[in-house]
């Protein structure tokens, strides 16, 4: 269980890193390495060169703006989880992060690295899709912003080109008074989700849902925004029959086929249960925010 032979580069600028990637189609960016190194130890990944970006000062840190939290490429999960400003403007982040592996993994693994790996069961891609965030890709021909829904294309596949670096991810803050919730079904704590569901919603003065955002991971080859369920719930008081309708409307979103330990039917039932719980929890929190 040792990686096969590879070259190693430690650039100190984004441009230098991009030029290495542009000159070698089999070079791979190394950030925290918590997914890449196991894959290399298994020899499932055999990059020609690792481009270690930890020494690029421009790729470190978190910037909390009025509308969006900018998470730079070398920001570790644990930094995002424990940042007090992030918790103030988007308390969903810390709730989601409790489910990402274990603290020693979160100490090393990066948020953007997880987005680039694009495991459809992982929490960070779901969070970006749920919030309607984006990433910034920088390559030899400049920068472009890619919306979350366009970034995740398929299983472990993103819209990033081989010579591009995702320099940052942009997670929107929660609007004032919004409620939030995330939970997942796993066989063991810290595993990838069998199914995970996140919800952000706002209530109007009459207690009706004025805006509902719902997304799930583990049900398809990408994280999925549950648009039909959102539309079904918007304008309702989020009662039992409204939840029934939302669950029914999201059944078709489960496309992951039967696997040895998890059938598609099980995933669909877990999705329905999580939608009910997350919408209810988010609505309770939105109510508490109003009365607080």
């Amino acid at each position: 269980m040792k990686p096969s032979i590879f070259g190693y580069q430690a650039p100190t600028s984004i441009d230098e890193a991009i030029s290495i990637l542009a000159g070698d189609p089999d070079a791979v960016v190394l950030a925290g390495g918590q997914t890449l190194l196991p894959a290399m130890n298994f020899r499932a990944a055999n990059p020609s060169t690792l481009v270690d970006i930890q020494h690029v000062a421009d790729l470190r840190g978190i910037e909390v703006g009025a509308d969006v939290i900018v998470v730079k490429a070398m920001t570790r999960h644990r930094e995002f989880e424990l940042d007090a400003e992030v918790a103030r403007v988007n308390p969903l982040v810390a709730e989601v992060m409790q489910h990402v592996a274990h603290v020693p993994i979160r100490n090393r693994g990066t948020v953007v690295g997880s987005l680039c790996h694009a495991d459809p069961s992982a929490e960070m891609p779901l969070l970006l899709v749920l919030l309607g965030g984006s990433v910034i890709a920088q390559g030899p021909s400049g920068q472009r912003e890619i919306a979350a829904e366009d970034f995740f294309q398929s299983f472990l596949t993103t819209a990033r080109e081989r010579d591009e670096i995702i320099t940052e991810a942009r997670f929107p803050v929660l609007s004032k008074g919004a409620g939030w919730a995330f939970d997942e079904v796993t066989r063991r704590h810290g595993d990838y989700a069998i199914v995970g569901v996140g919800c952000v919603l706002s209530l109007d003065d009459g207690g009706r849902a004025s805006r509902v955002q719902l997304a799930a991971c583990g049900i398809a080859d990408t994280p999925v925004r549950l648009n039909e369920a959102e539309n079904t719930l918007t304008g309702t008081v989020l009662g039992a029959s409204d939840l029934d309708a939302a669950v029914a409307a999201s059944a078709a979103a489960v496309t992951q086929p039967d696997e040895t330990h998890v059938s598609q039917t099980y995933r669909r039932r877990a999705l329905g249960t999580l939608i009910r719980r997350m919408v209810t929890t988010a609505a309770q929190r939105a109510t508490q925010m109003e009365t607080a």
Binding site: Y8, G33, L37, P38, N41, F42, P104, I105, N107, R108
Partner: peptide
């Protein structure tokens, strides 16, 4: 050697991390 068992945990700049998932 793939980050699951935790036997190789050491402190890197004061924080616990897997030495098998770090070059």
């Amino acid at each position: 050697e793939h980050g699951v068992c935790g036997c190789c945990t050491v402190l890197l700049n004061g924080r616990a991390g897997r030495s098998c998932l770090t070059l």
